[in-house]
Design a protein around this nucleic acid. Sequence first.
DNA 1: GTCTATAGGCTGATAGAC
DNA 2: GTCTATCAGCCTATAGAC
Lengths: 218, 218
Amino acid sequence: MQKAVRSRVRVRRGSEGTRQALLTTGAKLFAERGFDGARVDEIARKAGVNKAMISYHFGGKRKLYIAILTATLTDLASRLKALLETNDPPATLLRRFVSTFVEAMQQSPTVPAILVRELLSGGRHVDRHLLPHFLALFAVVREIVERGVRDGSFRSVHPTLTHFGLIGSLLFFFITAPVRERLQREGKLPMEVPPADAFARHTQELMARGLAAAPSRA
Amino acid sequence: MQKAVRSRVRVRRGSEGTRQALLTTGAKLFAERGFDGARVDEIARKAGVNKAMISYHFGGKRKLYIAILTATLTDLASRLKALLETNDPPATLLRRFVSTFVEAMQQSPTVPAILVRELLSGGRHVDRHLLPHFLALFAVVREIVERGVRDGSFRSVHPTLTHFGLIGSLLFFFITAPVRERLQREGKLPMEVPPADAFARHTQELMARGLAAAPSRA
DNA sequence: GTCTATAGGCTGATAGAC
DNA sequence: GTCTATCAGCCTATAGAC
């Protein structure tokens, strides 16, 4: 966190501060409106910097976006890959995967939307340099499930299908947060939606029971 | 299907044909690039009609989009709501929900992307008239789960959380289809991904075991 | 490094002929 | 209903002053 900044009041900051403000504000707006929907004017204004700074520091809108996407993917991938470096039982790893993923989404609420929007656009901005981090996201659940199937603690589910199902569940909960909140605020949502950590527990339980090799005795 | 049309060769068609061509092509492009990314010029060109027809028949880009969103939501909602009109056991209903949903996505491959993009944008285009259909999508799984919890065939899971988890799984599988296909085509995908109906069966099984009240004996 | 002013391209829309 | 031609507005990018 940096010194509190009143909205729209320009403040002096160094080169690094400007870069960071653009990355942060850009992530927020790209998440909300997508690459095409976000306007560089607005990114600059809300970041409290001049819009010419986008070209100066990043080389244009697209390159700012790629910088944000890169940061998003590498952060998430490294957090998740760390899980695989232990020899904990697969069932435990899967629980930890869910809680780690959910914590990451809570700490960086722009991540899920940016990720899903990039996927929707066919990964247009994922270049050779970024692809490994991108694929790493696809690999972690698969690896955990493969371990579990191998050691007999999971039934023989398909690792990739399990991956898509789980990641999809988690991402969807977070990308729908804005609509849910809007509808709730307007009194148009005829249900209550529990907070993210309740969703994490729900998902952990569902996966544990759904993948278990033997019928659980509990 | 209408008479085969060579790409880019304009053909005579009635008013209804023009409308339909714009709806179909528009759905495809809005799904691929989003509302802001899709260009009216391209929609018209690929539909084989003059771009002035968008204003004439729909009143502009935004109204064309809303017409497409409306068709998308009402079709899907009515298919799914039909499930609730039987008294089949909840476990059966849930299986049928999955297969119905998957069939719908396969028949209309633009639906998942349009839906998710609209959710990402906070449901900006869902007006008073469209909201009921939108909420209906939110209600079907919830209703099935409530029945199952009530009659004791499901353990006491949270219906809304189950809803988000399941819908998220299903939608995610389909919105990632374009990336997966691209990466596979380029030989960059280090895994095979089974077809949609295998995913449907995987999901049915996972949900059945994950929600079951008693340990399954199979 | 930052800002102002402006250029230049693209996009959605429509007037008016057919 | 359809098409051509045209326009006004918006959006990104940058030259040049500070």
